[in-house]
Amino acid sequence: MEEKNDGKNRLVDFSMNNGSEKAFKAIGIVSLILPLSFLFILIIDTAADGIPRLNWNFLTSFPSRFPEKAGILSALVGSIYLIGLTAFIAIPLGIGAAIYLEEYARNNWFTSLIEINISNLAGVPSIIYGLLGLGLFVRFMGLGRSLIAGALTLSLLLLPMIIMAARESLKMVPLELREAAYALGADKWMVIRKVVLPLGLPGILTGIILSMARAIGETAPLITIGALTYVAFLPKSLTSPFTALPIQIFNWISRPQKGFHVNAAAGILVLLTVMLLMNALAIWLRMRLQKRNI
């Protein structure tokens, strides 16, 4: 005889109405969609203004008094140089500092003091770094309003972020893998070089991507140290005056003519593209490293 289960004479009720979970899911979706849609509208609006202006001439021309002739060559090249130089300074310093703090430093009050200061520095407004750069690099060290002064200032700004991100990823490397390496007769430096760094690298790279993305959009510290707003030449050396994309955009937006506003929108699109390209490069690098690591 087959027992029929029509659902009416159930002994145990397995149904459950978990309304709170559904509500939480809904809140989660809304808080994802809301900011994303603002961002999307912003990008669409900018794209609508800027795309007609985007052409080869815009990318290869120097700024001009006439909006239709003005281009962003000096700002684009300036930004690329600036970011490259900043990365060159800040990445090795940041990773080195993180390795020291995470692997070598003794756990004492001095280390704690440094740690607290680094996390505080990550929260300091960028204009303060600009003022520091102005006082230290531009005036005291006599570097002037140069590319290298800008890169050094941005490096200061990024260092706390890179150090913290790198420390976090070094911390994530499992203790048992370090122990495995020590048990094979490795010294500390070999353990760091062959085990800890390769395993921590993807995380470190993520931190670097984020900080570089921030650096390319930074305006305030560059204006503070006196980056120029009208540059009709390309930087020739480390001590050349320079401009950068956000400064150029800022400059165009503050003009009364409508044509410059269109230029600013196009400039924003270029800036976003550079940023996306940088991120894509870093993600590709990270994936390659992870593949090699496996």
Binding site: E176, L177, E179, A180, L184, G185
Partner: peptide
């Protein structure tokens, strides 16, 4: 200690081959 560990090897509770 590094030289000691080269003469006295160790295998751990949880298998821990290097994942990379």
């Amino acid at each position: 200690p590094i030289m000691v560990r080269r003469k006295i090897g160790m295998v751990f509770q949880k298998p821990n081959p290097f994942p990379m």
